[in-house]
Write a protein that binds this DNA or RNA. Structure first.
Lengths: 231, 231
DNA sequence: TCGCAACGAGAGCAATGCTCTCCAAACGAA
DNA sequence: TTCGTTTGGAGAGCATTGCTCTCGTTGCGA
């Protein structure tokens, strides 16, 4: 589709791209609330109504931005993972954690868009779910590989209501071949990751920590132990 | 101050209360983005400009709501804690986790207000920091009591950069008398708690878990082990 | 009793998302 | 090449918002 054939199609693709680019810049500087279709149109030298030919609704623009953001995190995580030795499981986990945090710190508003309060009235359409799960899928792969390589010590079983065990079995899709108890822990560790990044970004660690890099790394290492990685 | 003396003062206090009440209701149904001073004024039978006599800015109303929300979580956590045996440390931890989650599920928009994306352009004033730390302070108390009672097993030390150790020593204020390594783990567990609640509330667990109660409880128990509680 | 501060009413401003109508240019089939 | 059909920009317009300003009125303390 990028090789639009008619002149109109090419110009349309180009303008659409330009709109999202400007919108992304506005988002990055003003935040999601400060994003205005009229302002984008203005910056493009368009009259405000014209922009609705490209994005019929502000939500549609937001959706595009959200998908981009998810993909950016997904890319970051995947690249970080790939730069590691395949069987350095702890290293891969640390790299993925760092990738998420680094990206979030560099793109706070985009991070907020996907992991903060859902935008009022906004309903995530189906197109977002695949991009949204890219990072998690990659993480699942890591756990699966580590488990099948015997590099994950079976954790001491945690007493839990039966529903949790059922859910754990459903996790097979993301953690193929991983023992349920390990898969559950993996989700908890993953949850810690995003909790930690959100806390830092939204200011909950202010006045509490002064060496955020170091504390984050400590947390990630500590979670690696919690996960049971033996190497 | 609630016993305002002059009629005017009493009426002012009452109107202020009524405004925040309506605002809280709007917030609960429409979310933070849908909160409109004009709508509140309308519902009160006031002309829109009159409301500015009570809250000079929308941010001021939000600040009030935010403080209320923080206090509500603080109350919930404190009450949950107090309903437990003093030396059932695991039980107290579980109770506090459940309290946070239960409150959040019952007041999703208020939760989002304090733990979601910071409202665009909003700068949290000083009045919010005390209410904001009530839950954490209570949690710190629990850890301190457990540690001094010898009910926390020293965790295997996690290798970490020096900054983390420095920060850990600063945690003395919230975790008095708690070994640094334990204090750090406590923060990570606390982070997991809010990460977990946020993930659930913001829909990240959709299509992943079906027994959210049970899975949450599993996580909390698993974190209790991570914390090193021995009873 | 008098003067001031508080406060409601109303009009107004700039901005937003979104709609509708009008018209010119690009397009594709004949 | 012509001609009817999309496509898409311009412009006006609507309802809504936060916020300001002015103008009376009214409660209050001195």
């Amino acid at each position: 589709m990028s090789a639009g054939r008619t002149a109109r199609e090419r110009v349309r693709a180009e303008l659409t791209r330009e709109i999202t680019e400007i919108a992304r810049r506005h988002l990055a500087t003003e935040g999601a609330g400060g994003l205005s279709l009229r302002a984008v149109a203005r910056e493009m030298g368009m009259v405000s109504s014209a922009i609705y030919r490209y994005f019929p609704t502000k939500d549609d623009l937001l959706t595009t931005l959200i998908i981009e953001a998810y993909n950016a995190v997904g890319d970051a995580v995947e690249q970080a993972d790939e730069a590691c030795d395949r069987d350095d499981y702890t290293g891969r986990w640390l790299a993925m954690c760092t990738a998420v945090r680094t990206w979030a710190l560099a793109h706070p508003h985009e991070y907020a868009l996907i992991h903060g309060t859902p935008v009022p009235g906004y309903q995530a359409p189906q197109d977002t779910v695949d991009p949204a799960s890219r990072d998690g899928v990659r993480f699942g792969l890591l756990i699966a590989e580590a488990a099948s390589a015997g590099a994950v010590a079976a954790p001491p079983p945690t007493p839990a209501p039966p529903g949790a065990a059922q859910d754990a079995r459903h996790l097979e899709a993301i953690f193929p071949g991983v023992p349920p108890e390990v898969a559950l822990r993996a989700v908890h560790a993953w949850t810690w990751l995003y909790g930690s990044v959100s806390f830092e970004l939204f200011g909950m660690y202010n006045n509490l920590f002064h060496h955020l890099d170091a504390t984050f790394e400590h947390g990630a290492r500590s979670m690696a132990a919690y996960l049971g990685f033996t190497r």
